[in-house]
Amino acid sequence: MTSTKTKIPLVPGDIIHALKSGMTIGTKLEDWAGAFGHTTVRGENIVLTADIIELSKDRYGDSWLQDIDDLDAQKVRWSEGPYFARGPAPEGMSHWEPGTVEQVLELQARRQVLYDSVKDPEELALKLRELQRSPLGQNLPALKNITIYDAEAPKNGTAQNWDVS
């Protein structure tokens, strides 16, 4: 089978950005174990190299970069998506998507920062309310039975289950 796609519309030095987290891309050809991989994070800018472009190709020479300007084709390719767009990420693009576990984790991390830094209970309550009313605190997914592994826990695999609904 030969390639059915058009030429890759990108060259080394071009920038793309991740629209979703979790896509692993090859980054370096000269590796004894294969190709170095990098798992993308939403909002991350990726400066393309010759290696990234070469490693984006399948055995027929087709590349996922050929779909960079066609978001519908990306959805077809990966059954979800799109994952990438041309150019740098828009200013202020978050690394979490609304309605995802990443949103919940970011909210928890920001709450913890407040608990650690704000000592006055009234000010803390005010800041926590502001955080909950922000876009980060809205439209949270319905999560149940999240397992949180504690780095300080004994080495016997102790975990805590939390119902966050």
Rank of each mutant, 00 (worst) to 15 (best):
P98N: 06
T100M: 04
E106A: 14
A125R: 14
K127H: 07
A125E: 10
D116N: 15
G92M: 01
Q112N: 11
V113D: 15
K144W: 14
R111I: 11
P98C: 05
Y115R: 02
P121E: 03
G137A: 02
L140R: 05
Q138S: 14
S134H: 06
Q108Y: 03
L143Q: 12
Q138P: 10
E123K: 10
P141H: 02
E122K: 07
K119L: 12
M93E: 04
V101T: 11
G99T: 12
L128V: 01
E102F: 15
L136H: 13
R110D: 10
N139I: 03
L128I: 07
S117Y: 01
L136K: 11
E102A: 10
Q112W: 14
P135T: 06
L131Y: 04
P135M: 10
E106M: 14
R111H: 15
P98L: 02
S134Q: 13
K144L: 07
E97W: 04
A109L: 11
K144A: 15
S94E: 08
A109E: 03
E102P: 13
V104P: 04
R133G: 08
N139H: 08
G137I: 02
P98W: 11
R111A: 12
S134N: 12
L114R: 02
E123N: 09
E97K: 08
K144I: 15
K119G: 15
P141K: 03
E97S: 06
N139D: 02
E123D: 12
A142G: 09
A89S: 09
A89G: 00
L128W: 07
